[in-house]
Amino acid sequence: MAVPRAERVTKWLIAGPPLAFLLAFFLLPSLIMALASLRYPGEFGGLAPLAARPGEESGLTLENYALFFGDWVYAQIFAKSLVIAALTTFACLVLAYPLALLIARSPKKRRDFMVLLVILPFASNFLVRVYAWMIILGPMDLLFTRFAVIVGMVYVHLPFMILPLYTNLEKHDPTLLDAAQDLGANAWHTFWRVTFPLSLPGVFSGSALVFIPVLGMFAIPELLGGKDDWMVGNMIKEAFLGTRDWPFGSMLSLMLTLAVLAIAGAAALFARRGAPNE
């Protein structure tokens, strides 16, 4: 059956502005970035003019990609970033889950207050909070280590794990817990057979909200990490602000975006196979 014309118009009116926003400020810049990664750097930063250099047919080159795939060091930094992001995500999950569960099972009146407490750290500046960790970790001789990086990452990203988990757990039907217990399940089995599987959508969205930003983070490794804790984000920042090689930085950004998309796609596939359709 055809959708009435007026309804279609309304749909586009509603969906149009955000769609236009994403096109203009996400898709288009990504394309510009992809293109930039194929060009030569300008002499003092920026991009070289597109005019063909003497002896070459166009102003485009795959040089950056050759560099990236030609040297193990880049793959190693990518791998290290993935490991840090994975560890951070896991630590956030382990810390956030009991708290989210506690909030979700508190009396309704108290829940909003507890959620407020969770997002309260956002009220103070990000850099201030990271510097605070320097003051804490410094005297403990833990500053400028991989551990310090992960502590900082976990601290900053914890609310992004708690909130989706809480939103999911809060919707669980408490009768299901009664039913599990009634049918012979102790608290441990009730959690692993009922609560946890039902919370997987929350686990996945929380993990995405932590994993993806951590992968591209540069401030925390720069402030809390040592020289071995360079992550992809640091390389990208260095390319743009340090060596001023925009095409190289664009290439790295693009590779990072592709890596995130690949991982998100794999997770979505995995999630769809694990859980039945709604």
Partner: peptide
């Protein structure tokens, strides 16, 4: 505790595990 009683319940909402 409930899990140790040889008594089972059919709940009004059925409480089937959706997953």
């Amino acid at each position: 505790p409930p899990e140790q009683r040889p008594v089972h319940t059919v709940f009004q909402s059925y409480a089937l595990f959706p997953h």
